[in-house]
Design a protein around this nucleic acid. Structure first.
Lengths: 218, 218
DNA sequence: TTTTATCGACAGACAGTCGGTCTAATGAAG
DNA sequence: CTTCATTAGACCGACTGTCTGTCGATAAAA
C-alpha cells in the first residue's frame, strides 16, 4: 500500500506509458492512470504536479533510453564508421531496435505534443553524437565535409520527418524506393564517391524485415 | 445579427485564427471564440461539429494560402531558377512573406497538433512544387541530380525542422551561422560547384532583417 | 513528533447536446 | 395586393457529463 516515492513514480509512469501509447495523451484521463495504478487522485498529484508533468517525465525516460542507445552504438569502435552511422539512425527510424518501440508509440495521431517533444530531443541530441562518428570518418579520409554537424542535422531531420508514418504517407514500396535516393543524397552530403555507401541497402532491408512498418510485403 | 452560413463560418474562423495564434489551440476555449464573434454556443456548433473541426477548417485555409503562394513563385518563369527555389523555401521559413505569419502563428508551444498538421501539408505539398523548378534547372544544366524529388524533400524537411523556433533553440547568430552550411549542403545535393549558390546568402540576410525571428541582433 | 505518502470529496472549467426560438422566404387563399 | 400559414435555416442558452487540479484529513514510517 504505502511505497517509496520513486517506486510509486515509476508505477505511475509505467501505467501512463502504456495508456498514452494505446489512447494518446489527450485520450487518456488521469482517472484511468490512477485506476490502473490503484491509487487515489491525491496520490497522483502528490507525485506529479500535472498531467503534462507526467508526460515530461516519460519523455525524460525516453531521452535517456534513446540517446543512451545511440551513444552506445556511436562509441563502439569495433563497428566500422559507415555502419555505425546507419545503425544509429536506424535504431530510431527503420529497424526494430529498442527505441523503435518508443517511436512507434509516439506516432499515434493523438500524441502530437509528445511527438514534438521527442522529435526535439532527437534533432538536438542525435547530431552531436553522429558528428563525432563523422569526424572519425573524416580523419580516416572516408568522408569529406566542412560541415559535419549540419550534415548530420540534415540527415536526422530528414529521416525523422520522411520515415515518420504520421508525416508522410508512404506505402512499403514507396518507402523502400526512398532508400537508394536517401543513400545517394547522403553520399553527396558526406562527400564520398557515388555508390560507395550503397552496400548499406542491405542493412535497411534486413532491419526492416523486407517491408516497413506494417506487415511485411509478400 | 442573422447571417449567411458561409459568412458566419468565416467570422468564426477569423476569431479562432486570432485566438489560437495568441493562446494556442488548447489554451483557447470555445467560449472565448463565441464571445469574440458574439454568438451563442449553439451557433458555433451549428456551423462546426467540434473544436477540432474548427482547427481543420483553419488549416485548410492555410493550405490554400501557403501552397498557393509557393505555386505562384514556383511558376513565375521571370525569376531565375536559383532564386525561385530560395524564395519558395524562404516564404515559409525565413523571410517575411505572407505565409510566414501563419507559420509564426503556428509556432506557439501550445499548438503542437496544428503545427504537426501544417508541417504535414508542407512536407507533402512543397517538394512537388519545388521539384518542377529543379527539373527546369536540370534542363538548363544548372543542377544535376538523379533524385530531384527526394532532394527537395530533404531540404524542406531540414528547413522546416531546424529553422523552426520550437524544435531547435538557436540564437540569431547561430541561425545565421547555419545558413552558409545549409547552402553548402544544398549545393552538394543539387550537384553544383561549391560556392556557386553562396550569393544567395544576401537573400537570407535581406529577408531576415539582419537577425532572425526575434528582434534583430545589434 | 515530524515527515512522508495516501486518500477522496470537491471546485472550477470545459466541450458538446438539445429542445426551443426567431426570421425570412414562399406560396396559397382571400 | 394583402394576409396568413408553413417551412427551413440560423440561432439561442441552459444543461450534462467529464476532466484536471486542490485541499484538508489521515495513516504509516522515521
Amino acid at each position: 500500500m504505502r511505497k517509496e516515492a520513486i517506486e510509486r513514480r515509476n508505477e505511475i509512469l509505467d501505467a501512463a506509458d502504456e495508456l498514452f501509447g494505446q489512447k494518446g495523451f489527450d485520450g487518456t484521463s488521469t482517472n484511468e492512470i490512477l485506476e490502473k495504478v490503484g491509487i487515489a487522485r491525491g496520490t497522483l498529484y502528490y507525485h506529479f504536479k500535472s498531467k503534462e508533468d507526467i508526460m515530461d517525465a516519460l519523455i525524460d525516460r525516453y531521452n535517456t533510453q534513446i540517446l543512451g542507445a545511440a551513444n552506445g552504438i556511436a562509441t563502439d569502435k569495433s563497428i566500422p564508421v559507415h555502419e555505425r552511422i546507419v545503425r544509429v539512425v536506424m535504431a530510431l527510424n527503420v529497424s526494430g531496435g529498442n527505441s523503435k518501440e518508443i517511436i512507434d508509440h509516439i506516432h499515434k495521431p493523438q500524441n502530437a505534443l509528445m511527438h514534438q517533444k521527442i522529435q526535439k530531443v532527437i534533432i538536438n541530441g542525435l547530431p552531436p553524437i553522429l558528428t563525432e562518428i563523422i569526424r572519425e570518418g573524416i580523419e580516416q579520409e572516408l568522408f569529406s565535409t566542412p560541415y559535419p554537424y549540419e550534415c548530420m542535422e540534415m540527415i536526422v531531420a530528414y529521416t525523422n520527418t520522411v520515415f515518420d508514418d504520421d508525416m508522410v504517407d508512404l506505402t512499403d514500396d514507396e518507402r523502400a524506393a526512398r532508400i537508394p535516393a536517401f543513400i545517394f543524397n547522403v553520399e553527396r552530403l558526406l562527400g564520398v564517391e557515388s555508390g560507395s555507401l550503397m552496400y548499406m541497402m542491405k542493412m535497411f532491408d534486413g532491419g526492416n524485415g523486407g517491408g516497413g512498418h506494417g506487415n511485411d510485403g509478400g
